[in-house]
Design a protein around this nucleic acid. Sequence first.
DNA 1: TTGCGTGCAAAGGTTTTGCATGGCA
DNA 2: TGCCATGCAAAACCTTTGCACGCAA
Lengths: 144, 144
Amino acid sequence: MNQGAGYKTKQRQAILDYLMENKEKHVTAASISEHLALDGTRVGTTTIYRHLDKLLEQGLVRKYTVDGTTSACFQFTDKDEQCREHFHLKCEKCGKLIHLNCSRVKALCDHIFDEHGFEMDFFRTVFYGVCGDCRNHQTEETEG
Amino acid sequence: MNQGAGYKTKQRQAILDYLMENKEKHVTAASISEHLALDGTRVGTTTIYRHLDKLLEQGLVRKYTVDGTTSACFQFTDKDEQCREHFHLKCEKCGKLIHLNCSRVKALCDHIFDEHGFEMDFFRTVFYGVCGDCRNHQTEETEG
DNA sequence: TTGCGTGCAAAGGTTTTGCATGGCA
DNA sequence: TGCCATGCAAAACCTTTGCACGCAA
C-alpha cells in the first residue's frame, strides 16, 4: 500500500529522513541538498525537486513561499499528528528565521477565526520585525 | 516634504498611477509593465523593480508572495489611513486586503516582545489566510 | 529485463547588477 | 551643471526539462 511511492533508493530515503527530522520547521531544496552533502549523501538538485513534487502530490509535505525569501519552503506533514502550530518570526536586520512555538499564537488564530471570520494560514504567515540580538547590537553601535 | 522620493519622471508617475488605480488588488512587476505598455508608456523592467523597491522602503506599497505563482505581488497602501496601528489580513483566494483593528493582536505583539525579545514590524507583517466570504463560496461550490 | 530513478547540462522565468546615456532640478 | 533615473545587456537565482545512464524490482 505504498500508493505509487516508487522505488526505494538511498536518495529518496535521505530526503525523507531529512524532512522528518525537521518536521518542526521548513526547509528549502537548497538546504536539503546542503545538509545531505554534509551527511555524505550527495543528491542532485533535480532529484530533490522531483521527490518534493511527488511528496506534495501524496500530501506528505506542504509547500509555501515565505515573504522575504526567494526559494520555496517545504515542510513535512505528519498526517497522524495534528499539525503543529508554530509561527515564523523573520528578522529584518539579520534575516534570521525564528520558529516560534507558542500557545498564545494558537489562541489568536482561534480568535481571528471566531470573531473576524478569517481562517489563518499560520504556516505561511510570517511576522516581520527585529530580533533581540539585533536590537542589542543596534544599541551598541548607536552608542559607539 | 517628499522625503527622498526622487525626481518626478513620467515612468515613476505611470507606475504610481497604476498602483493607485489598483489599490484593491495586487499586481506584479510583469503586469505593471504590460499594462503600462498598453497605455503607451513603455517602462523598462529594471525601472519598475527599482521603483517598487523604493516604494517598499517608503512604506507606500506592500510586497507579497502568492502561492502557486512565481513572481512577487505588490499592492499600494495609503499612508493616510492609519496602517501602522493595525494589522493586515491577506486573503489567499480573492486577494482582498483586510485592515484589522484588534486589541488581541496587539496583546500578542506585546507578548512576543516581552517573552521572545522580538520587536514586531506592524506595517510589514501580513497575515495570510482565507476570508469569510471565500470560505462560504467554497462551501457552496462543494455542495454543487 | 523492464522501467523508474538519477543527475548533468541546459533551458525558462524572475529579479538584480553594471554601465553608458538621458533627463529633472 | 550635477546627480539621479533609465534601460539594455548580462548576471544571478531558483526551478524545470531533456537525455543518457544506473539501478531497484
